[in-house]
Design a protein around this nucleic acid. Structure first.
Length: 503
RNA sequence: GGUCCUGUGGCCGAGUGGCUAGGCAGAGCUCUGCAAAAGCUUCUACAGCGGUUCGAAUCCGCUCGGGACCUCCA
């Protein structure tokens, strides 16, 4: 079997994965900014890295998965005007940032549960690590790579670049950006603010009087810059050098580039070995974003209450939709594509459910159909290799889909029970369970009350069966048609059994 | 303007130079009282133009189209 390979954004090629500490993996993924409700775009990285997490665990690694909550910064509630400059409002009337942050954090966690994402092992908040960030900034100032200006602190990118290029940590190493070009275009633009160069970025920002989130610091009251939180928290929980750093491609620059610079100054090395970036979700070919006014919130996506949507899509449908594309490709959203995913998921899930119901014959060591046996065996064996190849979940699913007709044919008696060996049948069961449930994190979305419904439907199906036996098709069709109108579809199986599904 | 990515059949999407990806939709057939489901078959494409090669969707060049980042962003 092949070994796991990841495409490393840092080296711009696939590399065989190995962890720094044998058997253990440290992974940091940039989490959400909780100043608003999570949207479809957020689904991609957190599902993608949930797969990474699940797969590494499947491979036997003990993983420390750190995913932050960005709850500090320049916050305003959506649709709400900035807070009054000097508010005379009573405290309960004022916008309380932590209340806002809590609300959206709760919504984010709700969405993550809906997607069946496993919680990270540590979920640190930026506001909970102000001290660590201040200490790190002080360190950078002490080393001469940051300067204070009017209560704000900026990272001196030009100086950093000059000194660290020789050490192989030039500014731009991750994004491929060339600093000199940026400086050239910058000089003409003559920035009025306190920065020495336009490419300098804030480590700490002075809080204007109207700013509602603020902390005491050696430079006065203010709040941390965006990039420093991830450096401080990853360093605290994963150390100066950890295995995997993940996030969306849009974070590659400037966010991750700046993280590298900050950590390089403090720890003299690039903080992570593997940099994994998932691509964007687009709508009609355009990235989802506030500026494009095409954001679908997750609650809207599930319920179908957005003008772009013709219907709601369940969390598992969305998850499956995302898995059908490689994580480094852009994924274009459309109703047609989601509907296709919904049907595809149903098809593979029904086959999977059926497979688990099979009673596998024991001690069948000679395949009744050697060709089919060989074919299935090859498909099953390729699954791990595809997954190891930079997490090609799309290809794994394609492989599983190829086995669906085999499962259905066995069920319908079109393929004899002894066609495949016991070993292959067991392997098929194992692989479906491993990939679909353990690694891909898919789950049955049928609710518990549907089980009670099942008992009722069984009774109705029995009555209808009697009617059919008497060739009373008027009654049997009436039952079926009216149930269909109620959204329940009966299906007469070949063996005389009746199955049903909600449509 | 700079730095990259990308262009695959009606739609979505894998594709490591040579072998039918897969899903959805459509068509035909089989099974079935009918339907649904299922099975089988079919539709077999790689933006365009050159080049490298015995052989290219896959490598190189050019042209055209689309997108991302350079500002908060998953």
């Amino acid at each position: 079997m092949s070994s796991l390979q990841f495409y490393n954004s840092l080296s711009r090629q696939k590399e065989v994965f190995s962890s720094i500490t044998p058997g253990r993996v440290g992974m940091y993924v940039c989490g959400p900014t909780v100043s608003g409700e999570s949207h479809l775009g957020h689904a991609r990285p957190f599902i993608t890295f949930d797969i990474v997490y699940r797969y590494l665990r499947h491979l036997g690694y003990q993983v420390r998965y750190v995913r932050n909550i960005t709850d500090a910064g320049h916050f305003e509630e959506e649709g709400r005007e900035s807070e009054d400059k000097i508010s005379k409002k009573a405290i309960l009337e004022k916008l309380e940032p932590m209340e806002l942050v809590q609300k959206y954090t709760n919504l984010f966690h709700w969405a993550m549960r809906e997607f069946n994402n496993i919680e990270p092992t540590i979920e640190p908040t930026a506001t909970g690590h102000i001290v660590e960030q201040i200490v790190m900034i002080q360190r950078i100032i002490a080393d001469g790579y940051a300067y204070e200006a009017n209560g704000s602190v900026y990272f001196d990118v030009e100086k950093y670049h000059r000194d660290f290029s020789a050490k192989g940590m030039q500014y731009g190493i991750l994004s491929g950006r060339i600093l000199d070009d940026q400086l050239e275009t910058t000089r003409e633009l003559e920035s009025q603010d306190e920065k020495r160069n336009k490419s300098d970025f804030a480590l700490w920002k002075h809080a204007a009087p109207e700013h509602i989130m603020r902390w005491q610091s050696p430079w006065g009251e203010g709040f941390p810059g965006w990039h420093i939180e991830c450096s401080a928290m990853s360093n605290k929980y994963l150390g100066a050098k950890f295995d995997i750093h993940g996030g969306g491609m849009d974070l590659q620059f400037p966010h991750h580039e700046c993280e590298i610079a900050q950590s390089a100054v403090c720890n003299h090395q690039i903080p992570a070995r593997f940099w994994l970036h998932n691509n964007m979700i687009t709508i009609n070919g355009r990235k989802m974003g506030k500026s494009y006014n095409n954001v679908i919130k997750l609650s809207e996506l599930f319920s179908g209450t957005h003008e772009i949507l013709t219907q709601g899509y369940s969390p598992m449908t969305v998850r499956f939709f995302i898995l059908q594309t490689h994580y480094r490709s852009t994924l274009d959203f459309s109703n047609e594509a989601l509907q296709a995913a919904e049907k595809g998921l149903r098809r593979i899930w029904e086959a999977f459910t059926q497979l688990n119901k099979f009673v596998i014959a024991e001690n069948n060591i000679s395949a009744g159909d050697p060709d089919l046996e060989q074919q299935c065996f090859e498909i099953l064996n390729a699954l791990d290799d595809d997954m190891n190849d930079d997490l090609n979940t799309a290809k794994v699913l394609a492989g599983l889909f190829e086995l669906v007709p085999v499962i259905n044919s066995i069920k319908d008696g079109l393929i004899k029970g002894n066609a495949l060996t016991t070993a292959t049948m067991i392997m098929m069961k194992e692989k479906f369970n491993t990939f679909l449930v353990d690694i891909f994190g898919l789950k049955d979305e049928k609710r518990h009350d549907e089980q009670k419904l099942g008992a009722v439907l069984q009774l109705i199906a029995d009555i209808r069966k009697d009617a059919r036996a008497k060739k009373d098709y008027a009654t049997s069709d009436k039952i079926r048609n009216q149930l269909l109108e109620a959204g329940i579809q009966l299906k007469d199986e070949k063996d005389g059994a009746v199955s049903w599904e909600l449509v």
